[in-house]
């Protein structure tokens, strides 16, 4: 082996070994120092400053901040965090950088509005975000739909929701279902059918896979809530009639002349506890269900650090 070849082999080997060693050590250092503060720090919180600093390339900056908001929400949501302190500022920066980034309003509201751990539990900030979106994009009927959705689902302000849907339905190219929603809201606010209609409309009016999956999850949860409510009423009736609780759902079904043993959306039979409570067998499969859950149930262990 000549001298030059020898140097090449030694240098190449050293390079590869050093790269492997530094990667390994970095991994170890990361384990010693968890991402303590990075996730919770917004070094620049003023949208105006960030817009200036972007030197006119604010569209790209908006995409970066939107991705950051999605990642922030997704990570904390995954670990069922109890708070989402940076979510609203991240969305505010995103939409100030690019006021026409419609997806940031639509998703942002659905991140901000629901109660933790499903969302940040900040419906009022979701309303503010949507109002800014409508101000910047006054002809976009979808923003009215999303704002009405927040009023209906999270603020339970059915009158306001009906107003917003009505307003949105008058825009050019607005989807006709906004008119139906406005009417439905005025007459049957708070009913399962109305909520089902909203989620079905959400499912049908998006091409995004994740939005569709989210809508399906909500529709499944609605069915569970409705089933459990009906079954619980049947248990009460059974008790009043016989002076005892039914042994199981089969006895309940026979006594109430149900077409068969009641099944949840996954095809599993509902469970009847000795105390007469109707529950789903796999509550983790219905993250948005509000009924049929065991007492004190929390779906997955939350990360202690994320409160």
């Amino acid at each position: 082996m000549n001298h030059r070849r020898k140097i090449t082999v030694i240098a190449a080997t050293t390079l590869l070994l050093s790269l492997a060693a530094s990667s390994f050590l970095l991994h170890r250092v990361d384990q010693l120092r968890p991402q303590a503060t990075l996730d919770e720090v917004l070094f620049l919180s003023s949208p105006a400053v960030i817009k200036r600093a972007s030197l006119g390339y604010d569209g790209l900056m908006a995409c970066i901040y939107w991705t950051r908001a999605v990642q922030y929400f997704g990570y904390r949501h995954h670990y069922h965090a109890a708070s989402y302190n940076l979510l609203a500022p991240l969305l505010e920066i995103t939409t100030r950088l690019d006021p026409h980034l419609i997806i940031a309003y639509e998703f942002g509201a659905s991140f901000l509005s629901p109660q933790p751990p499903q969302g940040a539990g900040e419906p009022q900030r979701a309303v503010e975000l949507m109002q800014y979106g409508i101000q910047q994009n006054p002809d976009n009927w979808r923003l009215y739909y999303d704002l009405g959705f927040v009023y209906y689902m999270d603020l339970r302000d059915y009158k306001k929701a009906a107003e917003i849907f009505q307003h949105g339905s008058q825009l050019p190219h607005a989807h006709p279902f906004l008119k139906i929603l406005a009417a439905q809201m005025a007459q049957h606010a708070g009913e399962y059918d109305t909520a089902r209609m909203l989620w079905s409309a959400t499912y049908e009016n998006t091409e995004d896979k994740q939005i569709k999956e989210n809508a399906i999850e909500h529709l499944r949860a609605l069915r569970v809530d409705e089933d459990v409510q009906h079954l619980q009423q049947a248990v009460t009736r059974f008790g009043e009639r016989t002076g005892r609780l039914p042994e199981n759902t089969a006895e309940l079904a026979a006594a109430e002349h149900l077409p068969g043993i009641p099944l949840d959306p996954d095809g599993h039979p509902y469970k009847l506890t000795p105390e007469g409570r109707v529950e789903v067998r796999a509550p983790d499969d219905f993250p948005f269900a509000t009924m049929g859950l065991p007492p004190g149930y929390t779906s997955r262990p939350a990360l202690r650090d994320y409160h």
Binding site: C63, T67, V70, I103, F107
Partner: peptide, 8 residues
């Protein structure tokens, strides 16, 4: 890693 902004 993001939602609906691939083209953007």
């Amino acid at each position: 890693i993001s939602i609906e902004i691939e083209k953007l």
